[in-house]
Computed example of a mutant assay.
Amino acid sequence: MCRPSRLRAMFASRACRKSVMIGKSLSNKDMKQLIVHMGEIDQPWNCPHGRPTIRHLINLDLLMKDDV
């Protein structure tokens, strides 16, 4: 798909502004959804602007205990 650079930059900016910010509390459901979605993208460790997207890593088993 071919997109003009200004349009690509606009989409990247919107994605960053709508992202989860450091300090925002998340439910277990929200955390699971983020992990699943980040697993679907090519480079989940950076946003389109190069900002890091992963700050803390946790034991995923802790999230899975709530499903039982």
Rank of each mutant, 00 (worst) to 15 (best):
M21I: 03
S27M: 02
S25F: 00
N46D: 01
C16R: 05
S25K: 02
K32P: 00
R14T: 15
L26N: 06
L26D: 00
F11S: 12
P44E: 04
M1C: 01
W45M: 06
R55C: 10
A9D: 13
R51N: 12
E40C: 14
R17T: 06
I35P: 03
M1Y: 10
H49N: 04
H49P: 12
L7A: 03
M31H: 06
L7W: 15
I58N: 02
R51G: 02
P48F: 13
H37F: 13
Q33Y: 11
R6G: 03
R14C: 05
K18Y: 09
M1V: 04
L57H: 06
V20S: 08
G50V: 05
M21R: 15
R51S: 05
R6F: 03
A9N: 13
K24D: 06
V68S: 12
K29T: 02
G23F: 00
H37Y: 07
D42G: 03
L57Y: 04
I22P: 11
A12T: 06
L57C: 12
P4Q: 11
A9P: 09
A15G: 04
M1A: 14
L57M: 06
V68A: 08
S19T: 11
I41D: 00
L34D: 13
R8A: 12
F11M: 14
L63Y: 13
N46S: 12
E40F: 14
G39A: 13
H37N: 11
R3W: 14
P52I: 05
G50R: 07
G23D: 01
L7V: 08
L34R: 04
C2S: 15
S27L: 09
A15V: 03
K29I: 05
A12Q: 04
K29P: 01
P4H: 10
Q33M: 05
G39R: 02
D61I: 01
M64S: 03
P44A: 15
Q43E: 07
L7M: 05
I22H: 15
T53D: 00
S25C: 13
C47R: 10
